[in-house]
Amino acid sequence: MLFIDEKTIDLAIDAISDSDERYDAALESIESQQAELMAYIFGEDEATFSDEEKDFLLYLLLIIWEAISLKVKPIVPITSAALAEAEEGTWESMEANVGKKFRERLDEFFEETKQEDLLAFIEDALLDDEESPVSKEGREPMFVMLKAVIDTIDKLN
């Protein structure tokens, strides 16, 4: 997949954040083209995320989708098996760095990816912040899920 730069991500943020129509169109696009991706995102154990965190997860996913859609046409359908494989690898790396702060645990992912700006976008969105709807407990699983999505799309496109 082509590199998704910060400028493209900013365009996607503006589009999704400023327009309910664009938000709905991106959601409809994912739902119609990526059934297994949506099942993966919403198939997570109900207790993992609060309703507010689920909304934020969807918002971040739509920004990622919109940014990628600006550069890649068409996006190859993602399989649940590919997502599971990407997620498992990310969890293994996260668990190997237990005891470090969240941000430090992510360093190795930036060394391994071609999509550094997309990972930085996720990292910034999930950092401890008074305005963030993501709890400390929800931060890691949300990062892992979104990284699995990026890695899978990157691998298949």
Rank of each mutant, 00 (worst) to 15 (best):
L118W: 05
S135P: 07
A120T: 12
Q115H: 10
F121M: 05
E88V: 01
I75N: 04
P74T: 07
K73E: 14
V76L: 04
A120H: 10
T113P: 06
V144P: 03
E116N: 09
L106T: 14
L106H: 00
L83F: 05
A81S: 15
E123P: 00
S69Q: 10
Q115S: 07
L70W: 02
S135Q: 06
E92R: 10
D128F: 08
L58I: 04
S69Y: 01
L106N: 00
A125Y: 11
N97M: 13
A82F: 01
E66L: 01
I68K: 10
A96S: 15
E92I: 07
V98Y: 11
L118D: 09
A96T: 06
Y59H: 15
L62P: 00
R105M: 15
L119G: 08
A125E: 07
S93R: 11
K71N: 06
L70E: 11
E130F: 04
E87R: 15
L61F: 14
E112N: 13
A67V: 10
S69L: 11
T79P: 03
L146N: 08
V98D: 06
S80N: 05
F121K: 02
L61I: 02
E111C: 02
I63Y: 06
E104W: 10
A86F: 01
G99C: 08
L62G: 06
A96V: 00
G99E: 02
Q115I: 01
L106M: 15
A82S: 15
I78L: 15
I68E: 13
A86K: 11
E88Y: 03
I63V: 14
L83W: 02
L62I: 13
L61R: 05
E131T: 12
E87D: 12
L126H: 04
E130I: 07
M145D: 05
L58G: 01
A81R: 12
E116S: 13
F56Q: 10
Y59P: 01
P77I: 06
L58M: 08
E140H: 03
E85L: 15
D124Q: 11
E104K: 12
E137T: 12
E130T: 05
G89M: 00
I75F: 02
I68R: 10
E112W: 12
A67Q: 07
L61W: 06
M142S: 07
P133W: 08
Q115R: 01
P133K: 12
W65K: 02
D124Y: 01
E116T: 15
T90W: 02
S132I: 09
L119I: 02
L106Q: 11
L62F: 07
K100A: 01
A120E: 14
V144R: 07
T79W: 06
T113F: 00
